[in-house]
Amino acid sequence: MNPARDWVFGRLDTTRAWADLADAGINYSVTEVRRPTWNIDTHRKELPSERPGEPEPEGSWALACRLVHDYEFSPPEIVRALYDPATPLLGRDMLLEARFHMMHFYCGVRITEVVDETRDNGDRVWGWAYETLDGHLERGKVTYEVVKHQHSGAVEFVASSYSQGAPTLDRITFLGWRVFGRRTQLRFYRRCGERLRAFVEAGLRGERVPAGPPLRAGRLVCAPTDAAAHRWDALALHRVAPG
């Protein structure tokens, strides 16, 4: 058996770290969220358009929804996720690996909302949101949506969020967050949109998206599928639940 497919996050016991999330709670209250102490962001990326009207069965919107469902849009050089694909999307726990150069932080999130609606303005929207759990280096919520503007046929990916660094970060993590945190956060959202557009374009050309099986740890899968295990991951500084 290939050890890299068991230890998908370097030397971390990923199965145990993921299982521990079941006992974690949301680490903030929405009543706390306000500027200027919280970052409130909306990032949009135009995707290939369709004809006006309902989403096309094999079109841009449907393909983007599938990729968003499986967290394939996440740039593996910044954030990877481990989860059980057999669990329902709503309520699913995900162990995230945030990669800041040679510092790897392992934090839990829980999917607390699934969006599947046609809005009053005619937009067809599908997506989901996760919130941060106890021990996360951040506090907040991120919502990922695929939107088809049915009047025009335009399709876009929208990531909206509110967040702040956890006030309980240990000294090493706090220094890493101060140096890399906000800059990496903004790069993450930009890369998410770029990757999703590239994958949708490839899928519409008839290419297999994603290509190949994901890394696995038992019944858990690592997303995105193109995340690769590297020998030097074992040399990184690993911090589990740093907040």
Rank of each mutant, 00 (worst) to 15 (best):
F157P: 08
M1P: 12
N2I: 14
R44N: 10
Y106A: 08
L47T: 08
T184L: 09
F180H: 02
S163I: 06
A129I: 02
W128L: 11
R66P: 01
F180D: 02
G206R: 00
R231C: 11
C222I: 05
G25A: 15
V240M: 08
L215Y: 03
D93A: 00
L186E: 09
T225Q: 13
M102V: 09
S163V: 07
I172E: 03
I26H: 02
V200F: 04
G140N: 03
P242T: 06
G140V: 03
V30W: 04
P55V: 01
R219G: 14
K148V: 12
H69D: 09
C222P: 00
M1W: 13
R205Y: 04
K141F: 05
A236K: 04
E156P: 08
V109E: 01
V79R: 00
A211Q: 14
G181E: 03
V155M: 12
L204A: 08
V179A: 10
I78D: 01
G153W: 11
C65A: 09
P36T: 08
S49I: 03
W126D: 01
R239H: 09
L95A: 07
R182M: 12
G153H: 11
L82K: 00
R99K: 07
S161E: 12
L63Y: 00
V68D: 02
H230L: 12
R178N: 12
G127A: 08
Y189T: 06
P224C: 07
R187L: 13
H230N: 09
N39Q: 12
V209R: 03
R110A: 09
V179F: 10
T173A: 13
V209L: 07
L133D: 01
T112H: 06
A24F: 11
N39H: 12
Y189H: 07
D70G: 06
A236I: 05
L82E: 02
R219N: 15
Q164K: 15
R11A: 15
D226T: 14
V158K: 12
